[in-house]
Amino acid sequence: MTSETTDLIAGAAVAGGTGEPKIVMEHVDKWFGSFQALKDISITVGNQEVVVVIGPSGSGKSTLIRCINRLETHDKGRILVGGTELTRDPRSVSAIRKQVGMVFQQFNLFPHLTVLDNITLGLRNVRRIAKKPAEEMAMKQLVRVQIESQAKKYPGQLSGGQQQRVAIARALAMEPDVMLFDEPTSALDPEMVKEVLEAMRELAGSGMTMIVVTHEMGFAREVADRVVFMADGQIVEVGTPDYFFTGAREARTRKFLSQIL
């Protein structure tokens, strides 16, 4: 299957991105003990491209994007972000993490800090920006996700949807080139999913490079440039949303889609 999928990747990569590729993964393997979570993953994400990763639970979707900012260490192969290779050198890790923002399923906001302090923490301590301008930048991002009125509150006082939007603002404030979303709506009550997807849609429209792990097929169909289907730690198929939702080639893909649609 390798030759077939790489063909698909190559074809779609040109279709989605402009200019130099933002993220390149080449033959990446990842093991958890004796369990292989990622098997020979190769994918390229172009500039301003939105890639949605779907697949059954335990298929390695989250592991894939967590390897990109080194929350997990890959065991084999290469990962390049913005031309920098991810190595054991802590400086390469930190250089890449500065380019990559991430939004988590469980928000992971800092409960002891206000919304505003959550966002300025990275600005002040990583980007070394003075207090005043950092707060202005933070407010700008809060306006962008339409939650500026809650700036002085603590995360525990917000609803799940609001918290996730704060998390998006926190990642955006660092002005990353790439945004990773790890099932951003899975922990939310149904009525709050929309406001988060709205913020993500706006972000995609502004030309951000994004990799999104999600089960929101509507979002995938509407926003994605490409959809990646994973199963058992492998990339099974890559294609445009149209290709996927009108009749994928692989039986496994069709079976998965029929189960969730």
């Binding site: 790489t6 063909d7 190559a10 990569a13 130099e20 590729p21 390149v24 080449e26 190769s42 390229t44 290469r78 390049l80 031309g83 920098t84 290779e85 190595t87 054991r88 050198d89 802590p90 400086r91 390469s92």
Partner: peptide, 20 residues
């Protein structure tokens, strides 16, 4: 097809910064 990505090499690691 294999994507040969452009690589910005990091400067050599001085011995006192070698994490290991």
């Amino acid at each position: 097809m294999n994507v040969t990505a452009p690589r910005t090499p990091l400067p050599a690691v001085p011995i006192w910064r070698n994490a290991l």
